[in-house]
Amino acid sequence: MNKQEIDANQWVDRYGDLMYRYTLLRVRDQGAAEEIVQVTFLAALQAIPSYAGRASEKSWLFGILKHKILDHFREIKKDRLFDLSPEDDPDPCGYDSLGNWQKMPRNWQLDPEKSAVNQELSEKLMLCLDNLSDKYRQVFVLKEIDGVSTEQICNEFNIKPTNLWVILHRARNQLKNCLEIHWFDGKNQE
């Protein structure tokens, strides 16, 4: 295979926005996201001599970016407890004394596979993600957006598996409630 061309002068224009959005989704903080993108380009510059050309320039840059995002997570881990604590938001879904839903989940009438690429719904989900607490958002992003395994998350962030499942359940319930308010309730009134 031919070695792929590297053109550092074009990096920012070609990949800057994509890399920034990718990072912002994961770290939420704009300043941190800008810094991570910058550090990634700097690391990439230094790594040019060892670029084997097996991956495209873009995948190679994203590979470095992913490492830098993980470094950032490890950094914030030092001052944040990821395990479940009594201060965390409880399950946002209520139930009556018989254990029935207080607010019945509705039929969203969507196919889970086809709806994954629904742009408008994706944008609503972005907004809803930003309503989660830092801890819930972080755990949800690792598990559901990056597909990191339960085992890895538990090891890396010192969470007990049972607590991880509780956090994910609550985060999903918050997202579901939020989507219901900001998307499905509106759609039904149309």
């Binding site: 890399m19 969507l110 690429v117 559901e144």
Partner: peptide
């Protein structure tokens, strides 16, 4: 099904090529 929809959307949101909106560009 709602949780499955959220799972599918989340995975797609994480793609490298996910379209960038105007307010999500690098300043």
């Amino acid at each position: 099904k709602q949780l499955e929809i959220i799972r599918g959307l989340s995975k797609n949101l994480g793609r490298e090529d996910f379209p960038v909106k105007a307010n999500e560009t690098l300043p």
